[in-house]
């Protein structure tokens, strides 16, 4: 049986408002690194809270490590680690006091599972007598992860651990997750950063309470309908409205220094025709090239063409 299973989970907070989650189903295999990818308000935190037994769903069934989230919430609470979206440790306690507190709360000691958190904790150990509130963003995050891991949980739930963290710290954090995965811990992680999707084994794209698709990042990319092209020009932002005005365009949006373009139909001569059209609009030095879509392209595609 899979470690985390959701079946048709629905949840609304306010009556008559659109539900936070609607018929969400997915499962996570043992030892898997599973990503929930979606913007703020997509329902990621609600999923975490239901799985960590903090919230009751309105409908549907869910199990974690074989335990039912409603009936067996005590068992679940002793076998999961959870890092909520906000930094949730005691700011007025020192690094060491925080870790000690959570270790004892989970009925263990720091030394018992030290091997697991060693790599992470050693980075913050020089500041162990500093109050948690005085740590930098990256260090807070490492402390929070250490606290969530200190009892060697079977399943680790991480709600947007990299939000508001800079690119370098984000990279380090994902490296840590990979090591934890190798220790056999099942990890469910959420992120609004599409570029982090490729670091997960399987992902669920989620928007306004609905799952858009679930698969490995590679399969999701492979399922992109049709071909995707990149347009390059010295004046990209002037190019955008002109390209959009072209008849045969299905998708056209900025992507960094390029424009990403998809045609309504993939014909061999469409790219050349587009270039001619753009030339007539005064864009002389435009280059077009077929590219492999990334997760963000797939997400945009799913948003504009929901099933």
């Amino acid at each position: 049986m899979d470690t985390v299973v959701l079946e048709n989970i629905s949840k609304s907070y306010i009556k008559d408002a659109p539900p936070a989650l609607e018929n969400v189903s997915f499962s996570v295999k043992k030892g898997e690194l599973f990503g929930l990818i979606g913007p703020d308000g997509a329902g990621k935190s609600t999923i975490f809270r239901i799985l960590t037994t903090l919230l009751l769903s309105d409908a549907g069934k869910a199990t974690v490590a074989g335990y039912d989230v409603v009936k067996d919430f005590h068992q679940i609470r002793s076998c999961v680690g959870y890092m909520p979206g906000r930094f949730s440790l005691y700011q007025d306690l020192t690094v060491e006091e925080n870790l000690n507190f959570f270790a004892t709360l989970f009925g263990t000691t720091i030394t018992e599972n030290y091997a697991l958190i060693k790599d992470i904790y050693e980075q913050i150990a020089p500041f162990k007598n500093r109050r948690a509130g005085k740590l930098s963003g990256g260090m807070k995050q490492k402390l929070a992860l250490s606290c969530a891991l200190v009892h060697r949980p079977e399943v680790l739930f991480l709600d947007e651990p990299t939000t508001g963290v800079d690119a370098v710290s984000r990279q380090e954090f994902w490296d840590m997750l990979k090591r934890l995965k190798n220790e056999g811990i099942t990890i469910v992680v959420s992120t609004p950063y599409m570029d982090e999707a490729s670091l997960c084994e399987r992902i669920a794209l989620i928007q306004t309470g609905h799952i858009l698709s679930i698969d490995t990042p590679d399969n999701i990319v492979a399922a992109y309908p049709g071909k995707l092209y990149a347009l390059r020009s010295p004046k990209v932002h002037l190019l955008l409205p002109d390209t959009r005005s072209y008849e045969g365009i299905r998708q056209c949006y900025a992507a960094g220094e390029k424009l990403h373009v998809a045609f309504k139909e993939d014909g061999k001569d469409h790219p050349a025709q587009l270039l001619t059209y753009l030339k007539s609009k005064g864009h002389q030095t435009v280059a077009i090239q077929e590219i492999r879509p990334d997760i963000e392209d797939c997400f945009i595609e799913k948003l504009s063409n929901p099933k």
């Binding site: 809270r49 960590t52 037994t53 903090l54 005590h74 609470r77 002793s78 999961v80 959870y82 909520p84 979206g85 906000r86 930094f87 949730s88 440790l89 005691y90 700011q91 959570f102 709360l105 989970f106 009925g107 606290c147 969530a148």
Partner: peptide, 13 residues
């Protein structure tokens, strides 16, 4: 408010 209640509740305590 600090969010620590979430962690306390998701513990065997």
């Amino acid at each position: 408010e600090m969010g620590t209640m979430e962690i306390l509740l998701v513990s065997p305590f």
